[in-house]
Design a binder for these strands. Sequence first.
DNA 1: TGCACTCAGTGCGTCGTTGCACTGAGTGCA
DNA 2: TGCACTCAGTGCAACGACGCACTGAGTGCA
Lengths: 224, 224
Amino acid sequence: MHQPRLSPRSPAPDRREALKSRHRRAIVDAASALMTERGDTGFTVDQLAERADVSRRTVFNHFKSLDDIVLEAFGTMLDAIVDGIEANLAAVPAEGPHGMFDGLAAAIRRTDLVAPITRLRQLVGPEGHEPAPPSRAALYERAINDVGARLAAMMMRRHPGADPLVVDLMCGAIISGGAVTVQHWERITGGVDSAESRRVWVELLDRMIALNRDGYGSAGPASP
Amino acid sequence: MHQPRLSPRSPAPDRREALKSRHRRAIVDAASALMTERGDTGFTVDQLAERADVSRRTVFNHFKSLDDIVLEAFGTMLDAIVDGIEANLAAVPAEGPHGMFDGLAAAIRRTDLVAPITRLRQLVGPEGHEPAPPSRAALYERAINDVGARLAAMMMRRHPGADPLVVDLMCGAIISGGAVTVQHWERITGGVDSAESRRVWVELLDRMIALNRDGYGSAGPASP
DNA sequence: TGCACTCAGTGCGTCGTTGCACTGAGTGCA
DNA sequence: TGCACTCAGTGCAACGACGCACTGAGTGCA
């Protein structure tokens, strides 16, 4: 069932709509609260329903699955990532045939991706669970895909004449690349913030951006 | 539909019951608030529903009529009257064949009936509406009857072996007599509190009690 | 006195919530 | 490896709230 996100400034037309919206909001807010308190997404439907003050059946009347709720609860966090990138896009004018990509790349260089992506990975799969169980990995994957989709929507708004396929692929690649880069950066530096670890981040990010800019055609090892 | 009064100390067994109780309570509380604010019972169902945050249909799902709600809202006030009488009953031991009546009479002499009955009449029918419209008069009548019923219930608890018919008649007579006495007292004194007006009250109350104690057989004018 | 209006109260159908019993996946343990 | 348990998710029916159109009583006015 299609659930449009309700704008806070458009009150529901009647009491039924209001109740429905209120319950949906309460469920998402409860999920956020439980994630914040526990530091992970491993709460049960019963705990969520109790916290939201609805029945567990009602939870599934509003959402298809627990993962859907968690993703919705991630919404604010994911929006913050995209909002940060968008703010930096405005600061850097992009020109020339690669303007869209170069502008995006410049904005990403200026945006803190480490903190939110690290936070996301912690919530979805706590330390010591490498590799994450398939269900947790799938949730993380969906969250990253969601950021890509939101980034694409934002880029389409800024470049209305752009090819939607290209924008979708580009944004998906950039965000997935960002996530992989964070992962490598953590392996190399242990996730510790320092002048050296920031240098490593810039290097890895530049490589990721360059590979995405120029393509992977010559990405393999040199032929003998 | 029978609606048992829910004790605050017995939470509803499930969410449906809880919701039902919550809405019923909200309706009664809203009626109390509106009566207090307006100084009368002349609010509309729409105003009540809005204040209680339910639909006007829901109001009639819980109560048969607006008057039923008003009476329910009077509950605290009416209970206070009976509680006051009961407290004074405990202070005066009643002995002898007329012990029950004499004890009740003594307690009533020590209880302030003027304030609550005056308050009740003001809420039900504001000044300048004498005689009150039939509908308002009916509401007042039901409220007075309700006090009588509560008083009878309390007296039965204190005198388990008493004849229920006698107790019902006695309590109804005493309370109705009290209301009539307040009315006469107001006509004579204008409702003003003073040493003289209190003397008049005691005189009228004594006459009412004596008539009820001894019956109305010789109540008419003396034969020539 | 008839008309227009307000408001209490109602019947009926829809909607969202809820209770309950159930299935199946995943997990831990003997 | 089989069993018992937990938990996500589901189908179904009942319940309470709600929306809506309606009726009738009461009221004020020309």
